[in-house]
Design a protein around this nucleic acid. Structure first.
Length: 573
RNA sequence: GCUGGAGUAGCUCAGUUGGCAGAGCACGUCCUUGGUAAGGACGGGGUCACGAGUUCAAUUCUCGUCUCCAGCUCCA
């Protein structure tokens, strides 16, 4: 049975149940969505958990009655009269926007709704459903419209699938980086004391971030980028030139020093532009690629903050590429390749990426020809790399089209990480130029791009992706040394030093605890390897290896262990 | 920012129909010196998110603020 019409039908049954219980409630819309369905209602009083249970009960009754879904085509005027009489204001508004015949449907008990379908034959075909939550949602998704109440539910072809889905939901909660991160001492956020959306990296998380940063610097240098570093605060004038002061002010932290207004940078572009402008550039210098691990601050609305995935202070792996229009295609191609290679190194394959191409919006700057060309180049690069993508018509920035690459969190919510944006605005605003082969001044095209997006968001996604069981090369502690008793601690220290010399990270568990307990805590802390060290190992100059998740691996020489681990670190990236 | 729900020890949670605040884990000290996922004893730790109000008395009731959670809007 088609899952979409099943869920869609289920949302109608829910609406019917709500109307039967509270006839005064007005109906808005109720589509099927990825994992279920929802319906938006206008009701004075909030739906409580008890209300949800009552609705579920009524739905069961409707399903038990096995009422047929009857669909009918009627004239627009008749539809307006029909729904007008029922005081279904939202339906009337929807009908007014429609042309031609209007499709309505009813069920046996005369419940009436506006809908194109498709539906099941009858309500009895619904076998397994559950209402999950209720939340506010704006009518038509527009912030200034009244807020309706949205009830979310899910529906499957069998009880078994439903149970499985609910179980997965529970398991997904165990991957939540907001739980795992602080529990494993990667990071924390001191909401009350320091402020919401501001991240504190504890030693393990800071080490992880350092590993990622080192990787990025190395890769960028390899691919022809130049590393730059720019200040965190810059004068307001600069942001007026860039346009941020007018278009982005509500998101910027501003303050005065000696009667001069400053801005805590929300973006890195103006800084990179100043460096570009510091001297006359020749076409021979292009493309110029400036890379910065740039920390920015944005005043995000309180309700949108979300662990590491949406914060107020974050560090972007940001670069700006200044190039000629001839170079644009190649540069885009290279960036996409860079993104794919990087994501792969971190363990995200193409299937875990959602790619979107956003085109020209209603309001835009630059010539239509520029837009067309840039959009073409973006699309061409995607096709060359064989990437599946979705086109988001009119979703581009006002200054240029863009490609966004998103990762999913444990609950399948998508978070934008990589983005490649063409920009026709800033080069103009800042009068950027290079001297072409004829000695004439020309304007370069500017490309904004991030690979991981923000390190905060990416680390959040990494934790959820791996359930905090990071691959060896990213694990802050790769090997835990467990001396069986105090007399072998010097042996453990010696081994730690040798591991260090071989670029392997280790810690010694010196606690006065039993071996079992130390192993248990190593497993819980997701440490890839343990070396158990007793008198036996010391006299034989060996180590007893334990691998996370697979137990005792036997005894080997330290050399052999180091060779094996080093090989693994190389292979996994 | 909006709608709804929530905030008790570092963590997971009991509890008080308004009357001295509880457990397990974690942490500390001591005993134990172990062989592959929790050894034992004792102990420290709380403005019950914050601020007002009602009351003889507020962690509990009321209001406000902050923050978190789900969703909406917005976004890396």
């Amino acid at each position: 049975m088609d899952i979409d019409s099943l869920r869609h039908s289920c949302s109608h049954v829910m609406a019917q149940a709500v109307k039967e219980l509270w006839p005064e409630v007005k109906l808005a819309i109720g589509p099927s969505i990825e994992d279920g369905f929802y319906y938006d209602f206008d009701r004075q009083e909030a739906f409580s958990d008890d209300d949800l249970r009552a609705i579920e009960k009524r739905m069961q009754e409707i399903i038990a009655k096995d009422e047929p879904f009857l669909q009918e085509e009627i004239d627009k005027q008749k539809a307006l009269d029909l729904f007008g009489k029922l005081k279904e204001d939202y339906k009337v508004e929807l009908i007014q926007a429609l042309a031609g015949k209007i499709s309505i449907y009813k069920t046996g008990s005369a419940f009436l709704d506006l809908c194109r379908g498709p539906h099941l034959k009858s309500t009895g075909q619904i076998k397994a459903f559950k209402l999950l939550s209720v939340a506010g949602a704006y009518w038509h998704g527009i912030e200034t419209n009244p807020m309706l109440q949205r009830i979310y539910g899910t529906c499957f072809n069998s009880k078994k699938e439903l149970d499985e889905y609910l179980k997965n939901l529970e398991e997904a909660k165990l991957r939540d980086h907001r739980k795992l991160g602080p529990a494993l001492e990667f990071f924390d956020i001191y909401h009350e004391q320091a402020g919401a959306g501001l991240v504190f990296y504890h030693p393990k998380g800071a080490l992880l971030r350092t590993i990622i940063e080192d990787y990025e610097r190395k890769e960028h240098l390899k691919r022809g980028y130049q590393i730059v570093i720019t200040p965190h605060i810059m004068q307001a004038e600069l942001w007026k030139t860039s346009g941020h002061y007018d278009y982005y002010k509500e998101n910027m932290y501003t303050f005065n020093i000696d009667e001069r207004e400053f801005v805590l940078k929300p973006m890195n572009c103006p800084g990179h532009i100043l460096i570009y402008k510091s001297k006359t550039r020749s076409y021979k210098d292009l493309p110029i690629r400036f890379f910065e691990l740039g920390t920015v601050y944005r005043h995000e609305k309180a309700g949108v903050l979300h662990g590491l995935l949406r914060v107020r202070g974050f560090t972007q792996d940001d670069a700006h590429i200044f190039c000629t229009d001839y170079q644009l295609g190649q540069e885009i191609h290279n960036v996409i390749e860079f993104v794919i290679d990087t994501m792969k190194d971190f363990g995200f394959n193409r299937e875990s990426l959602a790619v979107e191409l956003s085109t020209r919006p209603q309001k835009f700057i630059g010539s239509e020809q520029d837009w067309q060309e840039a959009t073409l180049q973006l699309e061409k690069a995607l096709k060359e790399k064989g990437l599946a993508y979705e086109i988001c018509e009119g979703e581009g920035a006002f200054y240029g089209p863009k490609i966004d690459i998103k990762l999913k969190d444990a609950l399948k919510r998508k978070w934008q990480c990589a983005t490649i944006q063409c920009d026709f605005a800033l080069p103009k605003r800042f009068n950027l130029a290079y001297i072409d082969a004829e000695g004439k001044e020309r304007q370069p095209i500017m490309l904004h791009r991030v690979l991981l997006g923000s390190l905060e968001r990416f680390i959040g996604a990494l934790i959820e992706h791996y359930k905090a069981e990071l691959p060896l090369w990213l694990s802050p502690c790769q090997v835990l040394l467990i001396p069986l008793k105090e007399t072998v601690v010097p042996y453990a220290e010696k081994i730690k030093k040798t591991l260090e010399e071989n670029n392997l990270r280790s810690d010694i568990d010196r606690r006065n605890e039993t071996l079992d307990k130390k192993i248990r805590s190593a497993e819980l802390n997701k440490i890839p390897y343990c070396l158990i060290l007793g008198e036996r190992e010391e006299t034989q100059s060996t180590v007893s290896v334990r691998k996370k998740g697979s137990g005792n691996q036997g005894t080997v020489t330290l050399d052999k262990f180091i060779t094996e681990l080093t090989k693994q670190v190389q292979e996994h990236r």
